[in-house]
Design a protein around this nucleic acid. Structure first.
Length: 660
RNA sequence: GCCCAGAUAGCUCAGUCGGUAGAGCAACGCAUUCGUAAUGCGUAGGUCAGGGGUUCAAUUCCCCUUCUGGGCUCCA
């Protein structure tokens, strides 16, 4: 039998005996590679390691520490989960079980409407470890739809998938489960357990080891709210014990930053159940930060050519009929209030009211762009199950602006908006951004194709002008116009969608907005919606998590605490505080009624930027001991020097923020 | 809205196989006056989320409501 020649990604070639597989190839390169191999890309197609290679094939080995490799591990682990569940819960139906970011899940229906409990996870995990220990092979086969129906005749969800693949209009959305072009692939682990799947999979379950089942949850079959509710089990899987431990550690770190936990610990705000779900009250320390955020926002908007407006929280139903909100979003609005002269609603958005300001008198092209700004509080009836701390809340305040401009002004306006947005976000410590440009949904839009094309081009041009890379989200725009969404990356790498810049062709039409042009004719303005923080509540939540509650000095509710070593030093401590207050510091003095170590510990737990300790030496020499957050203690610093350094730090932050 | 799990002192949690509850921290009081992450002793603090049912007796068992958590769906 002759040899075959395989080419590798680096351009080199390798001779192997005929019928060799990718696994043989990996082995021939090195035992380390063989061990790390989980699948292969053969001529551009992800393939099992155990498939014999054709002469001349181009092969790249997928190893377990790559994203693709982990995906294979996770998907394979989900099959093991399904097998374990079918063994422990006879009669369980398994639906779909894909790999997802950092893990996998599998959806089941248990006989007799039974559900999983958290205790079941341990049993299932133990069974999975048995399966892994048995080192069962993943054996691929290809089936015709009728064969597949026969094989999965007692698995209704699989049959439904087969039917969908088999039908002409097969949607390809939840592939990973199925095959293409009418053929259906399946992977068998034991005589009893086989699952439909495109693969690839690891050669055998022994390749899987480092996983953990995490939680049970309900999930609708095919994500359809009207469909049956299945039982989902989530898990995570990794290539090594270290990688699994690192991931679990990362989850713990994220949990420590949870804004709901920190908001309670730092006494920033609370969600009293007496208020009702999704509604928060701001305590003094949270309110200081909010005020600083708002003051800063107002300052920037003032300098940015915005005009401030105020509008009420309630409006007559007719306003929301005009704006279209009642047509499109009535479900998301608080129910109507019947009053003597009509029906009223809490406002879900500020834009209709801003349009009323625009239309309150005749407008000239000389006034455009007209930028109306408001910290506008809106109320949305978010469904009970979707509420989540400050991130999803029913009453919140937007740093909302509506910009009315001409078509010609659009590109410049958006370009300068991008500068403005990024500069403000940077001031709050965000450095990394990603941009999404959402385009027309051909199924659902208003306005002419021409104006969509123009506006979309204006948005894209603005991004290009700044050299910003962006992802195109085709069909993701709202019905009224294209938009740019801006995501920020936080200190531990998580991404949060904050800012949005949206063109709107609908509202100017609905409100009949017009301006008189240079040509003395009436024209319709284009409207931009934009928010930088998005919602102040949500932005604050993100800030808490970004900084893990340790706010930068300019935002810290309390910036300095002066601790006298003993009662005798309290008078001097008060003097020190007075000096700091004179330069605008937020400072307090801790009484010497507890051990110094204890008082320092408490101040550290409050995450204060500076603790100043003053004792005999300091009283004598007019100095302080400086204990900065995250830094080294420095003794005998002259008070004047500290005050100067502190006030420089604060004004530097302000200047940097304004100039960035 | 749907599935699952919860709600006990200000916080974190234990407990009651049905007989009205306990710890640590915090608070308050007394003593201690201390040089960089927890001084000691003591006191007080709870309609066991709310309502209904079963029971001689409910914080405990059952039902409903509210709120919370994890998901799903939704998110102008």
């Amino acid at each position: 039998m002759s040899n075959i020649t395989i080419s590798l990604p680096d351009g080199s070639t390798r001779e192997l005996p005929a019928e060799s597989t990718s696994l043989d190839l990996a082995k021939s390169i090195g035992s380390g590679l063989k061990k790390a191999a989980v699948a292969a890309v053969v001529d551009g197609v992800e393939t099992d390691l155990t498939v014999p290679l054709a002469d001349g094939a181009e092969v790249a080995i997928i190893t377990n520490s790559t994203d693709e490799g982990r995906h294979v591990l996770r998907h394979s682990t989900s099959h093991v989960l399904a097998q374990a569940v079918t063994l422990l819960f006879p009669g369980a139906k398994y639906a779909i079980g894909p790999a997802i970011e950092n893990g996998f899940y599998y959806d089941f229906e248990l006989p007799g409407d039974k559900t999983f409990s958290d205790d079941d996870l341990g049993r299932i995990e133990a069974k999975m470890r048995e399966i892994i220990k048995e080192n069962q092979p993943f054996v691929r086969s290809e089936l015709s739809p009728p064969e597949a129906r026969e094989l999965f005749s007692d698995q209704p969800y699989k049959v439904e998938i087969i039917d969908r693949v088999d039908s002409a209009d097969a949607d390809t959305e939840d592939t990973g489960e199925v095959g293409d072009g009418g053929a259906i692939s399946a992977y068998r682990n034991t005589d009893e357990f086989v699952d439909m799947c495109m693969g690839p999979h690891v050669p055998s379950t022994g390749k899987l080891a480092f996983f953990k089942l995490q939680k049970v949850a309900g999930a609708y079959w095919r994500g359809n709210e009207k469909g049956p509710m299945l039982q989902r089990i989530y898990g995570t899987a990794w290539e090594s014990k270290q990688a699994l431990a690192a991931h679990l550690h990362q989850l713990e770190e994220a949990a420590k930053r949870d804004h709901r936990k920190l908001a309670t610990e730092l006494d920033l705000l609370s969600f009293p159940s007496a208020l009702g779900g999704g509604l928060a009250v701001w305590h003094p320390k949270g309110a200081i930060i909010r005020k600083l955020m708002e003051d800063y926002s107002r300052l920037r908007h003032e300098r940015g050519g915005y005009e401030f407006v105020y509008t009420p929280h309630l409006a007559n139903a007719s306003l929301f009929e005009t704006s279209g909100h009642l047509d499109f979003y009535a479900d998301g609005m608080y129910p109507p209030m019947e009053m003597d002269n009509g029906t009223y609603y809490m406002k879900p958005m500020n834009c209709p009211m801003h349009c009323l300001i625009f239309s309150s008198r005749q407008r000239s092209y000389r006034e455009l762009p007209l930028r109306l700004f408001e910290l506008g509080t809106v109320y949305r009836y978010e469904r009970a199950g979707t509420l989540h701390g400050l991130m999803r809340i029913r009453g919140f305040t937007q740093d909302d602006s509506h910009i009315y401009c001409t078509k010609e002004q659009l590109a410049d306006e958006i370009a300068s908006l991008l500068d403005f947005v990024l500069s403000v976000l940077r001031a709050f410590g965000f450095e990394e951004f990603t941009f999404n440009l959402s385009t027309k949904d051909p199924e659902k839009y208003v306005g002419t194709d021409e104006i969509w094309t123009e506006a979309t081009a204006a948005l894209a041009e603005a991004l290009d002008r700044h050299g910003l890379e962006y992802s195109l989200k085709e069909g993701d725009a709202a019905f009224y116009g294209p938009k740019i969404d801006i995501d920020v990356r936080d200190a531990i790498g998580r991404s949060w969608q904050l800012s949005t810049i949206q063109a709107d062709f609908s509202l100017p039409e609905r409100f009949g907005l017009e301006y008189v042009g240079a040509d003395n004719a009436r024209h319709r303005p284009i409207m931009l919606h934009r928010a930088l923080f998005g919602s102040i509540e949500r932005f604050f939540g993100v800030l808490i998590e970004h900084y893990a509650g340790a706010f930068p000095t300019w935002l810290a509710p309390l910036q300095v605490r002066v601790l006298p070593v003993a009662t005798a030093h309290e008078e001097y401590a008060a003097e020190v505080a007075k000096g700091l207050v004179a330069v605008g510091a937020r400072v307090d003095v801790g009484k010497a009624d507890d051990g110094l170590g204890k008082r320092i510990r408490n101040a550290k737990l409050e995450k204060l930027p500076y603790i100043l300790v003053v004792g005999d030496d300091d009283v004598a020499a007019n100095t302080v001991g400086v204990n900065p957050r995250g830094g080294e203690v420095e003794r005998d610093v002259s008070l004047a020097a500290f005050i100067e350094q502190f006030s420089n730090e604060i004004s530097d932050a302000e200047v940097a923020a304004l100039e960035s």
